[in-house]
Design a protein around this nucleic acid. Sequence first.
DNA 1: TCAATATGTGACGTATAGTCCGTTGACTTA
DNA 2: TAAGTCAACGGACTATACGTCACATATTGA
Lengths: 76, 76
Amino acid sequence: MNLQELFGKRVRELRQKQELSQEALAFKAGIDRTYMTSIENGKRNVSIQNIEKVITALDVPVKDFFASDIFIEGKK
Amino acid sequence: MNLQELFGKRVRELRQKQELSQEALAFKAGIDRTYMTSIENGKRNVSIQNIEKVITALDVPVKDFFASDIFIEGKK
DNA sequence: TCAATATGTGACGTATAGTCCGTTGACTTA
DNA sequence: TAAGTCAACGGACTATACGTCACATATTGA
């Protein structure tokens, strides 16, 4: 699991916790609906500007976003 | 200060703490020296794959990299 | 003064990020 | 059956990041 995949996993986790659809989150973040899908599935090499957009749309501090066991080395 | 700039700032901070030159860190990360310069100066919209390369080269967990007051909202 | 080391800049071709349009299948509700 | 929502995918297109180069500047030491 690389950071790209872990990022998508974490986005999905937080999005579902808020009961938002991919489309709704994409709209909040100002990015394309289909792009949000591929981000969550770890298929895209997202840029840091879009990372910031998504995290902001999720309404969580950057610090908290990455303060998850998901990002601990060795996790499957 | 956007995330792009904060990222560069944090990279520089951790690199200097280890007394590495930009070139030495760039080599460890497998990227170009001049590219590392522009990353630290917040001039590049780095992708998540290169973010991972740099953080790995800094030899710090992702979690710890972002667990810095730098990333707290409202910081100049 | 010269050489070595470290950092920064602008520009450029190429690779790919990201958008836009549409389709499909799974699931739900009427 | 039909209609709606949602997630995923694909093709075609445009925007932009990647990766590198030549060059510049500053500092340090012989």
